[in-house]
Structure formats: structure tokens, C-alpha cells
Design a protein around this nucleic acid. Structure first.
Lengths: 314, 314
DNA sequence: TAAACTTGCGTAAGTGCTTACGTAAATTAT
DNA sequence: ATAATTTACGTAAGCACTTACGCAAGTTTA
């Protein structure tokens, strides 16, 4: 079994390149057949110069879709062989205008024939083929323009890693992790407050014994996130103490914790979920919005850092 | 209008390359995301070494479809970074066995995840697309394997040039060209004989006045080929004095002359065409066979160089 | 009107492969 | 058993581009 088959379609890049090489490979011989002693890479420049009698380096580059540096090199080589002449522009002395010499024009004539024949050969190959390579390339160019391969892979990574995250119920051995995960982000953006210590040091009493719930997110055997449901009254719970380790970000762990909390709240008979946050925590606010929370104006919060309140009706 | 559009499908090579670059462009960043500090081009070697714990340079090259030189370079770079170790083979001291170090194995683990995600992303892109790029590439690989682009272009060239060849009737001003074209090839392979001079110096008397016919092939204003029909008796004509200038070969001029002669012979009421040739003139014999002539054994020829006789029943 | 920026170009160096070539070891032929 | 060939590998250089950088000439801004 070949490498391509083993690796699968991931090798599409190499394969495209291989086919391109296959097509380009004969190019050098081709020019020989037509009796023009030029390098294949000169062709686009030749073509460009037959369209406009005179053109500047950069303009040619733009036209043929290459860099000015590449054109500059090609022109130097062509000039050495006497196919083109260079001439500084009078008005703008930076510009280097290039034009075909008589020898260049003669070669261009022959290249024109070659262009016809190559086009005909390729068109014939296209008509022989069942799958439309041209359209397929166009489609992929479009697809990758819309969303780069990098982004596509990142999405797959997130999905795969997300599926490896387990959301489990809080247990006494998580007490330390519960506090640490929260303290980490609070200290980064704000400072620890009185109410923080109450909840983080005594989750059993303040949250669970009070009819609430705590979830922990586990990734590869390590606790990397947490989120709590705190009972406010019979039908209303607060979503609080959500924290995800920075080392585990980009795995949609927040979303998973959020969904788990919403589900649990419903089970516990809640009809409303409430939360407090701060607008400088943009990714968090975005997450809450995605979960369906809406901004409200409620009673003042005991937390100093709170500057936004949100609610979700279940 | 872009260069690609102007040039048409001839640019398929560049376009393939462009797409390949587009796909490969993100590769470097990709590795960074997965926390492995390697060059993208190392990937196939990594992959190969995870399959077989230890392998030689050339064997890896064959597996991943690259040259041993390429692998040798990659391995040198990888070894410098401590991803692989090299070990001379005991039995065959030429061989250099390469294997992953612990660091290499750790990186390979991460690369495995990356492989999964990239494959998934690409497969998803394939499922989003309407035209099957993969099959299209496969088809083109096959098409070009069957008949290289070079040969395809040569065929188109022949066709185009053939269509520019005119077959005209002999006129007195062709006398010189008629002799020259024939003398050229006869002297190259054999020597001029008595009968040659008779026909070539006096085509009007020996061929035309005798009820035969002569065709001349003209390409770009120049006489580049000729062929004569010599009347043997009422119903039988000899196809003779066929000559094509070496400078005009590869344009199917022989075929065009042959067809013109066959058509004319029919018009002149012939039922049989006869010819004499020599088996060292392989392209000529092939042409005659293609025109429908078959080998016969007839009466001895007046030409020394003749060692084969052929006939075509009209 | 000087300073800051932009544009056009050339040159150098890098990229990821390849071909070409040289050397040593192993195998086969004589 | 020596010579000729093949194999395995490393190194260099080439290919067709690119990016990076520097310089000079133009243009805009303060």
C-alpha cells in the first residue's frame, strides 16, 4: 500500500504538487521542439509583453501573478540572452520599462504557436476526462478562501478535544481544584473578595448542602474546569464560579459546563438561571449569550467586580 | 481579466501549484498549534518512523515517495534537533538506520492527533464540495501516464501544421524542387541511379505526358514535399518519387501526399497502386502500410535500392 | 520646506524538493 | 581472486519561486 493511500486525503497537497510537476516536467523539452531556446519560467513574461508592447517590472509581476522580484530576475536573464531591452522611464526614474527586442518578438511568434498547441492538447485532455479538474480546483480555491485550512483544522481539534472532556459531579476530593481554578482567574483580573472565600472554602456547606450543584470538567485525567449552580430560591438558581484552566482553553469546556448546568437546573425544578459577571471578560459574556442568557438589571450584587447581570428563562 | 483567464487552461499547471501552496501554506502554523516544533517537510519521515521503528534512508525515501537525498537532508535536520538517532547497520555498513528518540516519539504522538484533525478537516471539505477533486486528480494522473503532455502537444502541433500544408498539382516551375527533394534523400541513404535521372530530369515527358501525375506539398510558401503517380498500364499506376524535406518532417506531409495520390489514381481510372521501396526506410514503409499497401512479390525492379514491393487495390 | 511615508526595483537568501556526482561497501562477473 | 557493477548514502547545486531588506526616487504630511 502506497504512502498516499495510508495517509489518506491529507496528502492532497503533495498530490496536487505532484500532478503540477507532471504537467510542468515536459515544459523544457516542449520549448526545444518549437525551436525557441528559453526557460519555461520566462513564458508568462513573454506573454505579458506581447499584450502590452512595454511594461514595468512591478506591473508585469501583478499581471502574471508573481512578485516583482521574480520578474526582475527573469527579465535580467532574458536581457542577457537578448530577448528584451530595459529602459528607464523619463518621468519616473524609478521605473524600468521592459520591451521585446526583434529576437524577442520572433521567439514570441513561435511561442504563440506553442500556446495554441498546448491549449488544444489540454482542452482535449479535459474533454477526455470524466471528472472536471478545473471546476474542482475552482471550488477548492473558493472553499479555502471562505475558511482557511488552518481554521478548519482548529475546528476539528476543538471538536475532538471537546469530546474527550468529561463533565462529572463534584466530590470532596475536588475541593482544592475547585478553589484553585477560580482563584486563578479572579486574581488575574480582579482581587479575591469576602464572598469568594465563603463559597470557595466551603462549597459543601454554601453550595451543595444549600440545594445547589457543582460540576467538574476532566480532561486526560486532570480537572481543568468547574461551574456551580447556587440555589437562590425554589425556582431560581445562580450560575457561578465558572472557571476553565488556561492550559485547557479552546476545547469548548465552558460550553460543556454551561449545558450541564442548564440541564441540571431543569432537573432541580428551576425556571430561571441568573448570573453576574464583568464585561471585561468578553469570551465569558459571549459564552453566556450563546447559552441563551440575556442582560437584565437586577438587585445590586455582593461582588465588587460584578458590572453585568444576566438571566436565562428555562 | 486575470492572467489565468487570458491564458486559459494552459495555466492548469500553475493553478494546481497555487492550490497546493494554499493548502501547504498553513502547515507551519499548524505544527505550532499542536505544540511540536518541527518543519512541515519532516512530517512524512515522522510518519514512516512510527510505522516501522527503524528504517534506512533509502527505504524511507521509497515509502514516502521522495528521493534518498531528500530523506538524508531531513534526517540530518531532525537529528540535530534530537528527534531521531542514526545507527550504522552491523551487517551492511553502508546502511544508516534511523529511529525516533524519546523526544521524537513524544512529538509523533502529538503529530498523530494533528493527522487526525487535518484528515477530518479535509474530508469535511471534500464532503462540502460538489466536484470531486480527488478523483479528478487521479484521472489526470492516469491520462498523463497513458500519454504524456509532451506527446499530446506534439500531436496537436502535427495536426495544426498539417492543416497548413497545401497539396497542389505539379507545374513547370516545380521542376527543380522535384529533383532536389528526391535527390536529397536518395543520396543520404543510397546513390543516384540511371532511372532516377530519367524521371527527375524530365518529369514532364516521363511522368505527366505518359498519363501520370505529380503532386507538390507547399508549407508557408515553400515546396517541402512531392510524390508522383506513374502510369504503368491502363489500370495500374506506380506511386513513386515520394520525398519530404527533413526540415518539414512531423507534419504528416507524407500522409497528405499519399491520400492525394490515391484519390487521383481513382480519378484516373486505376484499380491498383504499386510501389517499390527499401526496408531500411522504416517510416516510409509504415506510412505505406497505414495507407493500405500490402507487401507483394512482383517482377524485378529496375532500381538497385528496391528490396520491397507493395500494392494497394483501389 | 523638511520630515515621514510610499513606491519601484534589485539583490540576497530561503524553501522543499530535485538531479548530479563522488565515495565507500557489497555483490556479481570473469 | 580480482575486476566490474550495483547499492547506500551524503553533499552540492539547481529550480522556480518566495520573503526580506536596502536604496533611491517620488509623494504626502506637518
Amino acid at each position: 500500500m502506497s504512502f498516499y493511500d495510508k495517509v489518506g486525503k491529507m496528502a492532497i497537497g503533495s498530490r496536487l504538487r505532484g500532478l503540477s510537476d507532471m504537467i510542468t516536467a515536459d515544459a523544457a523539452q516542449l520549448y526545444h521542439i518549437y525551436g525557441v531556446d528559453i526557460h519555461p519560467r520566462w513564458w508568462p513574461v513573454f506573454y505579458s509583453l506581447t499584450q502590452a508592447t512595454e511594461n514595468s517590472i512591478t506591473a508585469i509581476g501583478i499581471e502574471i501573478g508573481q512578485t516583482h522580484a521574480s520578474v526582475s530576475q527573469i527579465v535580467r536573464e532574458m536581457a542577457k540572452q537578448g530577448f528584451v531591452t530595459e529602459r528607464k522611464n523619463k518621468h519616473d526614474k524609478r521605473k524600468n520599462f521592459v520591451s521585446l527586442t526583434e529576437k524577442g518578438k520572433a521567439a514570441a511568434m513561435k511561442l504563440n504557436d506553442q500556446h495554441k498547441d498546448v491549449s488544444a492538447a489540454i482542452n482535449r485532455a479535459f474533454s477526455e476526462s470524466q471528472y472536471d479538474l478545473w471546476k474542482a480546483i475552482e471550488e477548492w480555491e473558493y472553499l479555502l478562501e471562505q475558511k482557511s485550512l488552518l481554521r478548519r483544522v482548529q475546528e476539528e481539534k476543538k471538536k475532538r478535544e471537546g469530546s474527550m472532556v468529561q463533565i462529572i459531579d463534584y466530590a470532596p476530593e475536588h475541593k482544592c481544584a475547585f478553589k484553585q481554578l477560580n482563584e486563578e482567574w479572579i486574581r488575574q483580573y480582579f482581587k479575591m473578595e469576602e464572598s469568594d472565600y465563603k463559597a470557595l472554602d466551603h462549597p459543601d456547606e454554601y453550595i451543595i448542602a444549600n440545594g445547589g450543584h457543582i460540576f467538574m470538567a476532566v480532561y486526560q485525567g486532570e480537572v481543568v474546569g468547574t461551574c456551580a449552580l447556587i440555589k437562590m430560591n425554589g425556582k431560581k438558581f445562580e450560575l457561578a464560579k465558572m472557571a476553565v484552566s488556561p492550559r485547557a482553553q479552546g476545547k469548548s469546556i465552558g460550553t460543556l459546563l454551561g449545558h450541564a448546568c442548564i440541564k441540571k437546573a431543569k432537573e432541580l425544578g428551576a425556571n430561571t438561571l441568573y448570573l453576574e459577571s464583568n464585561t471585561i471578560l468578553k469570551p465569558a459574556i459571549n459564552l453566556y449569550l450563546k447559552l441563551g442568557f440575556e442582560k437584565i438589571t437586577g438587585p445590586p450584587s455582593p461582588y465588587e467586580r460584578s458590572n453585568i447581570q444576566m438571566e436565562l428563562t428555562l
